[in-house]
């Protein structure tokens, strides 16, 4: 197989568009999420959205819409718990995660036709429908625009909410918009490419970036750079080595993180 055969297939071209969109956008959200000590939020929301899929199938509304609604609900619940327990912010994701999985388990028990549930449970970056492609690109553009409009505000909030309030940042509004963006991104991306890619893309590029970046601006740029290279390299490897793309992308990220750790050690010596 030559290099060109990679782009010869429609499904691979779609996969690369989605990989570029998510590789840029998810790490942007990831930077703020990590600084807010909510690294597990991607996982928590993705699992909670399963309850939305099950609920949607039960009451006969579009399961993806159901997933979106529960995701938004779960994201605001996480925010609410986080404010109640500010010292233990990460606990809020664990609580919502278990509540979501529990609810999904109970609700899926009522679904007669198990195969239709399975069809909505899993997504894959190499099997993207037209509607999914449009949804992913649209949400990516929306997130990018809002992220750069609120660039400074988000930075203040992520570091220290109290001093952000003092410097006149409308933290409730910014938090509200950011929570909404996170929820919608996870809901769509998890259905499209699978929860694994979403939750790992929130954390792994940021972890690499934090090793080498010297400022907030650098952290954001390096995160996007790392995120983009993980998805693109992982997808390419999965094509040539006949691997499952989700796992290949995540493992690329993990290998890169290990590499960055070691390089940093060598340079510091």
């Amino acid at each position: 197989m030559t290099l060109m055969s990679l782009f010869q297939y429609d499904f691979m071209r779609r996969a690369f568009i989605v990989a570029i969109a998510l590789g840029i956008v998810v790490p942007c959200i990831g930077v703020i999420v990590v600084l807010k000590r909510l690294s597990m939020i991607g996982d928590a929301l993705a699992h909670t959205s399963l309850a939305g899929v099950a609920g949607g199938l039960l009451v006969n509304i579009n399961p993806v819409l159901g997933a979106g609604i529960t995701c938004i609900g779960a994201a605001f619940t996480i925010e609410w718990i986080r404010k109640k327990l500010p010292q233990y912010a990460e606990m809020s994701t664990a609580i919502v995660l278990s509540a979501g999985v529990g609810l999904a388990g109970v609700l899926s028990g009522f679904i007669q036709n198990a195969t239709s549930f399975n069809a909505f449970l899993f997504g894959s970056i190499v099997a993207i429908s037209n509607a999914e492609l449009i949804a992913v690109v649209a949400i990516a553009l929306l997130v990018l625009i809002l992220f750069f409009l609120m660039y400074q505000e988000l930075f203040y909030i992520a570091l220290d909410e109290r001093s952000a309030t003092l410097s006149g940042v409308p933290i409730n509004t910014v938090n509200f918009i950011f929570t909404l963006l996170t929820a919608v991104t996870v809901a769509i991306a998890a259905r499209t490419v699978g929860a694994l890619i979403v939750s790992s893309m929130m954390v792994l590029p940021v972890a690499c970036s934090l090793q080498i970046a010297k400022s907030y601006r650098q952290t954001v740029w390096f995160s996007v750079l790392f995120g983009l290279s993980f998805t693109l390299i992982g997808l390419t490897i999965s094509f040539y080595a006949a691997l499952r793309p989700g796992g290949a992308i995540v493992l690329t990220g993990v290998c890169c993180l290990l590499l960055v750790f070691n390089l940093k050690k060598m340079v510091c010596r």
Binding site: Y9, F11, F122, V126, A127, S238, A241
Partner: peptide
């Protein structure tokens, strides 16, 4: 519908 396919196999089928 349960598992993720690998792209090389999909290309082979195509």
């Amino acid at each position: 519908p349960e598992g993720e396919p690998n792209p090389a196999r999909m290309a082979e089928i195509i």
